[in-house]
Computed example of a mutant assay.
Amino acid sequence: MMKLSGIAAFLATAEAGSISAASRRLGLATSVVSERLADLEKALGTKLIQRTTRKLSLTESGLSFLPRAQRIIREADEAEAELAARSGTLAGPLRLSAPVSFGALHFGSALCRFLLEHPEIDVSLELDDRFVDVAADGFDAVLRHGPVGDTRLIAQRLAVSRRLLVASPTYLKRYGCPVALTDLSNHRGILYSNRESDWRFRTASGWSVVRPTPALRVNNGMIMKDAALAGIGIALLPTFFVHDSIASGALVALDIGVRAEGAELFIAYARDHGSTAKILALAASLRQSFGEPPYWDNPLITQGE
């Protein structure tokens, strides 16, 4: 007979790519994970994993069993969560992914508040700026900036953030301060490399895209902020990155008469995951922590209003 522990060991190994990585994820000794895999293969009467000295791969039977294993573990977790919710306690594992910079600046403290409220939940958090595949990468939910276009996912909005053009006083003294949209093309831009046509502004005739002279392209908001502080150029950043620097005067919010496209923060999870009580409780807790409007959107900061 199959044991749930064996299925969990197989799933962790398939997702992590090695038995040693799976053992770290499960918090078990490598020998225990290997033993549970062997017991599962014996119960099923087939080889699921092909082991060599160089790599580990799934057999044809393993590839066929993988989606069933994912469903079994997910349904077991959801059953546990549902029963815990009915008893007034949320419990069990919750694997999350969030962007690196936002995770360090804001999500970490909000998540700690959630865990204090629900100490029986076992959270595993990975910070990653790439757009992870929720189901394929084994996550229960992910935090994302911007719209979630994957129709396999349910997305719930957590917060709306403004984005502001910012530059250091040193840069503005050297290159001048832009006062209109047309001025931006003559300036040096610190650009986010993961998004094309990132500098979008709402004008009376619709959306307008500006392409400044690139001074730096990077896929991390904190490095963009550091570059702006150093006087490298102008950056268009969400207020959750720059609100403190604007308040201190280290960065200046630029007013060019129009407003930049905003940034939205979502939590997304697979449609077939169900309305798990843990994810919904996390979303509610995050909204409360961030506020409406979010605490990083200082009402005194204006641009194009």
Results as ranks from 00 to 15, higher is better:
7 I>T: 14
10 F>Q: 12
17 G>H: 10
19 I>H: 01
24 R>V: 10
24 R>Y: 09
31 S>L: 02
32 V>R: 15
35 E>I: 10
36 R>K: 14
40 L>Y: 10
47 K>R: 14
48 L>G: 08
48 L>H: 11
61 S>Q: 12
76 A>C: 07
83 L>N: 07
92 G>F: 02
98 A>D: 08
99 P>S: 08
104 A>H: 14
106 H>S: 13
109 S>W: 02
112 C>K: 14
121 I>W: 03
124 S>F: 04
133 D>E: 11
137 D>P: 03
139 F>I: 06
142 V>D: 05
149 G>W: 00
150 D>A: 07
153 L>D: 05
154 I>L: 13
154 I>V: 15
156 Q>E: 15
158 L>Q: 05
164 L>C: 10
165 L>K: 00
167 A>Y: 03
174 R>A: 13
180 A>V: 05
181 L>C: 02
183 D>R: 08
184 L>W: 05
187 H>V: 00
189 G>A: 09
190 I>S: 04
201 F>T: 03
208 S>Y: 03
212 P>R: 00
214 P>R: 01
216 L>W: 02
218 V>W: 02
218 V>H: 10
234 I>L: 09
243 H>C: 13
247 A>Y: 00
249 G>E: 09
249 G>K: 08
269 Y>A: 10
281 A>K: 06
294 P>R: 11
300 L>W: 03
302 T>D: 05
305 E>M: 00
